[in-house]
Simulated scan of single mutants.
Amino acid sequence: MNNVQRFLLIGVLVEEDRDRNLARIIRRNLRDTMNPFEMSDMHFKQLFRLDKISLINLINNVGRVTDRLGSIPLHLKVLTTLHFTATGSFQNPVGSSSWISLSQTSVCRIINEICSAIADYLFPIYVQFPTTIDKKNSTKKGFYEKWGTRGVIGVVDGTHVEIIAPPVSDLEHPPFVYINRKGRHSINVMLISDSNSKIIGCNARFPGSVHDAAIWQTSNIRNYLQEEYQNGDISAHLLGDSGYPLEPWLFTPFANAQENTVEANFNRQFNTVRNVIERTNGILKGRFRCLSRHRVLLYHPIDARLPIVENEIEYRENDINIDPVGNNILQLGRAARNAYVENNFL
């Protein structure tokens, strides 16, 4: 029996031996009556949405950035958090599971601790937009090999995560700013995906009433792409739907394109490639059910420290967007898209 098999049987933690770069096994006295690592692989993944090896790696990574002190073992904290996010259940049923046996108060504290550690420390490591030449070329290659599109480094879209309405008495976070176009309270999350449905950009700071285009306007990724364009890199493009502004670094479909034209051909290929972001959203909400509209997050937006934007901003192709040096970005975007079509569809 190898070390990994022993781990799966006794539910221990693996820590890296910094001197020898090996793994050593540390036995833990579990507080519960059941060892979750003794579950079948299928049952384990249903409960935690990760396989056992991936979860071991997550525990190790969280352990490097969070305090391991306390009566509750770190692995139990991570398992509890994943069980909650995977099922979208209430905290009491999560804590009452036979292998957890924790109070609702403890579960609440654990979820906040582990989610904060992941968001503050692990998120910047694993969610990275390609900025080096090698990473840009690798990302472009992925889109080209799958769909024959050139110069695409990502697909952007917004998805709504529903939340409970803030109290009417909350003047700092009034409920109406979280009401989206479907009349539900939500957070509008901007996601950017590569060709393999890997998330390479995310912005979850805005209420549901804020339009996708307004979130994009405040994005650090947009600022980066604009700077790169002004420095001479005109070969990198994101794809976004008609809710986004047409820019030289962000292509949107042609409006009212006639059949059997190069514009229509562009739109067809565009829609095919954009399916990757729809698939990414589906995978994310299917794997972590707490994000699904059928499992409304029972958290107040204050906990997320969301800034309030009271006026929804919507950009259309007729709007004029001027960059810091006085250029009309819409005109530059049209010219860049037309050049792309001429080079790839004629």
Rank of each mutant, 00 (worst) to 15 (best):
N2Y: 09
L8I: 13
I10W: 05
V14D: 02
E15H: 13
E16I: 11
R20M: 07
L22W: 05
R24G: 09
I26L: 11
R28S: 09
R28V: 15
N29P: 04
N35H: 09
E38V: 15
D41T: 11
H43G: 01
L47I: 03
L47V: 04
R49I: 08
N61W: 00
V62S: 02
R64K: 12
V65S: 07
D67R: 12
K77Y: 03
L82R: 10
L82F: 08
T85S: 06
A86Y: 03
G88V: 12
F90Q: 11
N92P: 03
P93G: 08
S96P: 00
S101Q: 14
Q104G: 15
Q104I: 10
Q104S: 12
R109Y: 10
N112V: 14
E113S: 14
S116N: 15
A117H: 09
D120L: 13
D120Q: 15
Q128R: 15
F129N: 13
T132V: 09
I133P: 03
D134E: 14
D134F: 10
K141I: 11
F143I: 14
T149L: 12
T149Q: 14
G151R: 05
V152K: 04
I153T: 09
I153E: 01
H160S: 02
V161K: 01
E162C: 11
I164A: 10
L171T: 14
L171P: 01
P174F: 00
P175N: 11
G183Q: 14
H185I: 05
N188S: 11
V189S: 00
V189Q: 00
I192D: 02
D194A: 06
D194W: 03
S195R: 05
K198W: 01
H211Q: 10
A213N: 08
A214N: 08
I215V: 15
I215C: 06
Q217C: 04
Q217K: 11
T218H: 04
S219G: 11
N223A: 12
L225F: 07
Q226H: 10
E228P: 09
E228L: 14
Y229S: 07
N231C: 07
D233R: 13
I234F: 08
L239E: 11
L246K: 00
E247N: 13
P248V: 05
L250W: 06
L250F: 12
F251S: 02
T252S: 13
P253M: 02
N256P: 09
N256F: 04
Q258P: 02
E259T: 05
N260I: 04
T261N: 04
T261K: 00
F266C: 11
F270V: 06
N271G: 01
N275S: 13
I277F: 03
T280Y: 02
I283G: 06
L284Q: 11
K285E: 03
R293E: 06
R295C: 13
R295H: 15
V296K: 15
H300K: 03
P301V: 01
P301H: 00
I302N: 08
A304S: 06
L306Y: 00
P307L: 00
V309F: 01
V309A: 02
E312F: 06
E312Q: 12
E314H: 05
N318C: 09
D319A: 08
I320K: 06
P324R: 04
P324K: 09
Q331H: 06
G333V: 09
G333W: 04
G333T: 10
N338R: 10
A339S: 13
E342T: 15
N343K: 12
N344T: 12
N344P: 12
F345E: 09
L346G: 02
